[in-house]
Nucleic acid binder design. Sequence first.
DNA 1: TCTGGGGTCCTAGGACCC
DNA 2: TCTGGGGTCCTAGGACCC
Length: 428
Amino acid sequence: MIKAKKIAIVDCNNFYASCERVFTPSLNGKAIVVLSNNDGVIIARSEEAKALGIKMGEPYFKVERLLKANKVNVFSSNYTLYGDLSARVMQTLETFSPEVEIYSIDEAFLNMDGIAAENQTEYLHKIRKTVKQWTGIPVSIGMAPTKTLAKLANRFAKKHKERDGVLNLFEIDNWDDILSATPVEDIWGVGRQYSAMLHNYSIHTALDFARADRSWVRKKMTVVGLRTNLELNGISCIDLENSPPKKKSIVSSRSFGEYLTEYDELKEAVSYFVARASEKLRKQDSSCNSIGVFIRTNPFKNSPQYYNSGDIRLPYPMSSANELLPYSHRILQKIFKSGYYYQKVGILLMDFVQTKNISLSLFDPPNRLNQIVATELMDKINKKYGREALYFAAAGMKENRRWQMKRDLLSSHFTTNWKQLPEVKAKE
DNA sequence: TCTGGGGTCCTAGGACCC
DNA sequence: TCTGGGGTCCTAGGACCC
């Protein structure tokens, strides 16, 4: 945790759409949308696509004709590409501030306290220009004494083109106009439910909310809402996080390309997810004490619906897929009912402890150490030769997985070949 | 028959984020 | 035909204990 008095947030504009443009400059100025997994819904839009009235979260099939008619470029999401470009953006930001909190794939908070630039607003413009030059990604920047205000400034900068992508609240005497130009639903930390509630009480803008009675806010919106209120008044409640905290739970789930009906197929998918999730678990050197599985039919389909989930407390903390698989199968067996068209399954790992803090116990199965050694080896091989170079038979043969997702409109994995990329300047 | 007060731990559910 | 995936935090209420 870092107490900072000056916080900037750098936010990539239309990140996924911008990523698609980096290696295909002919897309500049053209409308782009990017689809979620399974080509389900729209999760990113370029400005041109927004101007066509295409909404976030809109199912693809509903707007497919509109997109075609307007010659919108449509992409399946290409997370390998986005992840690589994100890393390059973050590396660039780290040359500008000693404290960078990577908040999401396309956003980072920067501690600007120690920055001795003569003109901090100019410095922000320089960051923006450099990121664009080095990575090809356009960003917007907001700066303020709290995270919530920085986000608000950032949004304002994005909306008002004349600001050239930057708003530094410190150079503005009175923020009232900016707060009153921000509807409550656009405040960071105020979602759909609370904004509806606030409007009911005639609280329509960030300024209204900032001036609302604190004990009322606390009562209606818990301490979380109170923090947002304080932050809007310039009182910092949410510190910068310097090192990413370890995950407290890990989920792996997916909707299928086709509906599944057979237990054996679901079992394959569950096994695959256990392998994926436990990999992440081991990466952060954790082991889990419980595991859950859920399955469900397609709630949008007019057919018999079924949802169920279950979890098991494990006899000892585990991190290898080999050990976890039987438990996941046991849960699936319990919750599976035949006669339904399943659309999605997922698994959850929970209740983590640090692996180094657990000792092998007298009651462990005799081959436990072998399992662990085998898992380490498997991780090493997969790290070297790529995901699923080696994988569990329980997850089914790669070629036969009916449950794999649909990604018909995928762009190339440009960044897999690093030679195509301009060199990123190393951090000093 | 009468039936206190305070603490902890756990879980489910609701809100939010990207 | 076709509607994403992966997280966090907070609170209320029940179980249990003394």
